[in-house]
Simulated scan of single mutants.
Amino acid sequence: MTQRVSRARELLLWLTAGLLTATLAFVITSFTVWDGVQGTAETVRDRTAPAILSTIGAKVELLTANAAAVQSFGSGDVVRSGPGRDYQDQIALASQNLAQSAGLNEAGDKATSELQVIEALLTQYSGEIEQADARYRQPGESTLGLADLWVASRMVDDQREGVRVLLDGLVSDQEQALAQQVAPAWANPVLWLVPAGVLLVLLVWTQWTFSRRFRRIFNPQLIAATALLATAIGIGVWWTAGVNAHLRETRVAVQTVVDSRNDQASQADAARVAKLRQFLDDRCGPGRCGTAVADLAPGPATVPTALTDHDVSAQTEDVGLATEGASSGGWLRWVLPGTGIVIGVLTGWGLWRRLDEYRYQA
């Protein structure tokens, strides 16, 4: 009899050790995974997505500013009011957005270097426009002012190292960073479902063992722990699917804004190219500016119809809604591990009663 009691107590000790180990694994993995999920979602919301929107916004504002400057020179308004208020407002916004993008950058050292080059070129571009303005106002130096305007436009337009090309490369790098963050590495439930599944199986098997070997059909603590674990697994899987869906929505929403802003940029640049061609022909005579007109980057065969700023603002709000949806599960960072701790307490309580019985019998 004593030997049977000893073996039963040994089995209970093994069950206790297995259940508590599985519970500890569930607590650790659930916190690690959901802390990573929440951190990624918050990074996308607070840094990566805003950085992309700031960069593509800077591109539109730069090209709009450039078009406004060319319009001012071409119409002669530059003599009275310089490059114009539109130019000044847009170039200030471009500088502000670039600074914001630099502060939020999540695309690594390469993107940081690109931002530094772009900011330096933007400063140089502004200087060329100011010099063009000053010279164009001076009697007899309008041609030099026109040359400076041309140099400034080429800084934006150059197909190899122009600001526009560099901005496109930067947006691409930032979108790759977003794609890596949206990838379901952290949001994969397998990382915490395995220990959760092991714990669930152990709980069920323990209750079956109690009913077969110890004639204890009901153990309220283990039943409560099993129900709590099953609920936690269901909530975790459901919310994981939601986070993945919201992160995918974020990527699509960001791409939609980028496409719309690129259409706006193309429209602004097409207007700038057409006006600059006309301006050069007016000053030099048709075809007499030589390679200057020929070197202008050809505009697209068809310029897309750009959405209004109001429409783009609505698309940007969609980005915000998607990122908020992805990052709104912060409570799971604590609830799932907390649930594991409660399960551990219930499991220990339920097993301790049986251990106590066999200690008494021994």
Rank of each mutant, 00 (worst) to 15 (best):
A270V: 01
R261K: 14
I235Q: 04
Q264R: 12
V252A: 10
Q264P: 02
T250P: 00
V258C: 12
D263V: 01
G236T: 01
V252D: 15
A232E: 11
W238Q: 09
V252F: 04
L247M: 15
A253Q: 13
V273D: 06
S260I: 00
T250V: 14
A241Q: 12
R248Y: 09
L247C: 13
V257D: 06
D259I: 03
A268I: 08
S266W: 00
R251G: 15
Q255S: 08
N262M: 04
R272Q: 07
V237I: 09
A265Q: 08
G234F: 04
Q267N: 11
V254H: 03
D259C: 03
I233A: 07
A253H: 11
A253P: 08
I233S: 03
G236W: 06
L247E: 09
V273A: 10
I233E: 01
R251N: 05
V237N: 05
S266G: 01
G234Q: 07
T256L: 12
V252E: 15
V254P: 08
Q264A: 09
Q267G: 03
V257E: 06
R248V: 12
N244V: 07
A268M: 08
I235C: 12
A232M: 07
R272M: 06
Q267P: 00
V252L: 05
W238A: 15
R248T: 10
R248W: 02
H246N: 10
T240L: 10
A241R: 15
A271E: 05
T256M: 07
V258T: 02
W238T: 15
A232R: 05
A270F: 02
L247T: 09
V257A: 10
R261I: 08
